[in-house]
Structures are given as structure tokens and as C-alpha cells.
């Protein structure tokens, strides 16, 4: 039989619809945004096509640059925490007996079954001033106050002051770690699961302890997976909008919020387009670094 890839008709039938779809709904809108990013905001907030770098220059002004740098900072911290939590989790799943592995994986992706908005609102319920965490802390406080009262020191603890957990940078990072953890665990799991366990046994056999094995053998061999996981988490966190919008406060405005503001209340589409493309350039550079690193890994590992 003829190879179906050589059949022109089959080729066009299979490739035309997705290609058309991508061009129509992805490439062209993106091109429009790109053109807009060099445009100017008219007096009534309309977009005027021009060739101007003013929007890019404006994004480098301190107030805007500050938001970009803060976004990078929040994304970096989120990625680091996700790796610290995700690596042991992925290892636990990868080395669990085959019977439990799929159940554990299912638990990791279970949150995806609920809408992100609902899950983020759940965090508000947990973190707000009279939320679950403060409620629990108050309960512990009351318990301890009672104990001290019995010991004849009723006023040692003072009155309970609820912690301000919501509407700040910490809340955003907690939310982002929660949202992005599955994206870190899955690539790490995929790498660790493929890892030949005899490398780890060889390390133990040669006299290394568990920690030494982790740092000298497991982590280096899982490096491609770690890089993928970190990239994914970083890119997703950097461009996020919903989490800082709902959980953040004035100290945690991120690029996503700034962009949303330009397309919304500020009615400055050209500036919003320039910011969007700035975000995309950062992402492209990271992906390029990743591809470059992968080429190096290939030469080393296989």
C-alpha cells in the first residue's frame, strides 16, 4: 500500500483544517497585537497604527519595570518552592509500588477537575481574616489561654490578633504554588519514573548514603525533567492574572494585571500589546535556553 504521507489528498485533508484554524485564530490575532504594540493611543482611547517604540520605552519606566521585576521575583520564588515540594512528591510517586502509582498521580491532577476560579476563591475562604487558618489559630489561642488561666497567668497571651494572610504577596505565592504544583510534579515524575533504578542502587552499593545519592546521582540524572518543570512553572507564574487579581494586594500587582488594566479601564491597547509581547519575548528566550541546554544534555547523556 502507498504510504499515506505521500498521498497529497490525504495530506491536505489532514493538515489544512488545523493549519487554517491556527492561522486564523492564533497567528493573525497575534500579528494584530504585534502591530498594535507599535501603535499610539488616540485621545479617546482608540488605537492608531503607527511605527513607534514609545510603548516599549514606557514599559521600561521605573513604575512599570518595577512590576515586571516583581513578577519575575514572584515567579522565581514560586518555581523554587514548587521544585522543593514537587521533587520529593514526584520521587515518592515514581518509587511507589505500581499498584498505588496511578492513584497517586490521579490525586495530583485531581484539582484540575474543578474550575480555577472556584479553587482560588477557596483560598480566600482559607486565608481571609476570619478564614479557616485564623479560625484554627484562634481556637488554639483560646485553648492555650485557658491552660495559662488554670496556671494562674490569665493575661500572658493577650487578645487574639488574626494574621493578615490575604491580599499580599505571600498569598499570591501560596496561590501560585498551589495552582502550578501539578505542572511541576508531572514532568518530574515522567523523568524519575524512566530513571534506571540500578543507578541509585549502584550509588548505595558504592557506599553513598541516601542524601548523597539524591544530590550526586538522582538529581543530576533527572536534570532535564527539573529544567522542564521549572520552565513550565516559571512561564505560567510569570504571565498569571487571576491569582494576583484575587489573592493579591497593592504590593503584588503582576504583569498580567498591568496588561489587563491596559485593555480594560485604561483603554490603552498599544501599551497593553507591547507589555504582552514583552512577556512573550521573555518566554521565547527561556524556551530557547531550554532547547540549547537540551542539546547539551543529549550529547552528555546518550
Amino acid at each position: 500500500m502507498e504510504d499515506w504521507r505521500k498521498n497529497k489528498l490525504v495530506f491536505w485533508i489532514l493538515y489544512l483544517p488545523p493549519t487554517a484554524w491556527l492561522v486564523l485564530f492564533f497567528t493573525i490575532p497575534l500579528a494584530i497585537v504585534w502591530v498594535y504594540s507599535f501603535g499610539e493611543r488616540g485621545p479617546l482611547g482608540q488605537t492608531e497604527i503607527a511605527i513607534s517604540f514609545a510603548n516599549y520605552i514606557r514599559s521600561m519606566e521605573w513604575t512599570n519595570l518595577y512590576i515586571i521585576l516583581k513578577s519575575i521575583w514572584i515567579a522565581t520564588v514560586t518555581t523554587a518552592i514548587c521544585l522543593l515540594i514537587g521533587f520529593p512528591l514526584a520521587m515518592g510517586i515514581a518509587f511507589a509500588s505500581a499498584r498505588y502509582r496511578n492513584v497517586l498521580l490521579l490525586l495530583v491532577i485531581l484539582p484540575f477537575w474543578t474550575n480555577l476560579l472556584v479553587r482560588t476563591y477557596a483560598w480566600i475562604a482559607i486565608l481571609r481574616t476570619n478564614g479557616h487558618v485564623n479560625w484554627f489559630l484562634e481556637w488554639v489561642h483560646g485553648l492555650l489561654a485557658g491552660v495559662f488561666g488554670l496556671l494562674g497567668m490569665p493575661d500572658v497571651l493577650g487578645t487574639f490578633e488574626p494574621l493578615q494572610l490575604l491580599y499580599n504577596q505571600k498569598a499570591v505565592i501560596i496561590g501560585l504554588v498551589y495552582v502550578n504544583l501539578p505542572f511541576v510534579v508531572l514532568p518530574l515524575y515522567a523523568t524519575l519514573e524512566k530513571l534506571d533504578k540500578s543507578f541509585l542502587e549502584a550509588s548505595l552499593d558504592l557506599g553513598a548514603g541516601q542524601w548523597r545519592t539524591l544530590f550526586s546521582v538522582t538529581a543530576p540524572l533527572a536534570w532535564p525533567g527539573i529544567v522542564t518543570a521549572a520552565m513550565l512553572c516559571f512561564i505560567l507564574s510569570l504571565g498569571t492574572y487571576l491569582t494576583p487579581d484575587l489573592l493579591g494586594g497593592p504590593d503584588s500587582v503582576m504583569i498580567g494585571n498591568l496588561i489587563a488594566q491596559q485593555f480594560g479601564p485604561s483603554r490603552d491597547w498599544p501599551f497593553g500589546s507591547a507589555l504582552s509581547f514583552l512577556l512573550m519575548y521573555v518566554t521565547f528566550i527561556l524556551l530557547w535556553i531550554r532547547a540549547f541546554a537540551a542539546r547539551g544534555e543529549k550529547g552528555k547523556l546518550h
Binding site: S198, E201, L204, D205
Partner: peptide, 16 residues
């Protein structure tokens, strides 16, 4: 890691 034996693995397990 505390035994006075060492092993040559079937897959060799030479660290890549």
C-alpha cells in the same frame, strides 16, 4: 552502603 561487598550490575549502571 555499609556492607563489605560491591556489585557489578547487569546494566552496568555506569553513571552517564
Amino acid at each position: 552502603n555499609r556492607r563489605p561487598v560491591n556489585m557489578v550490575f547487569q546494566s552496568y549502571a555506569v553513571f552517564p
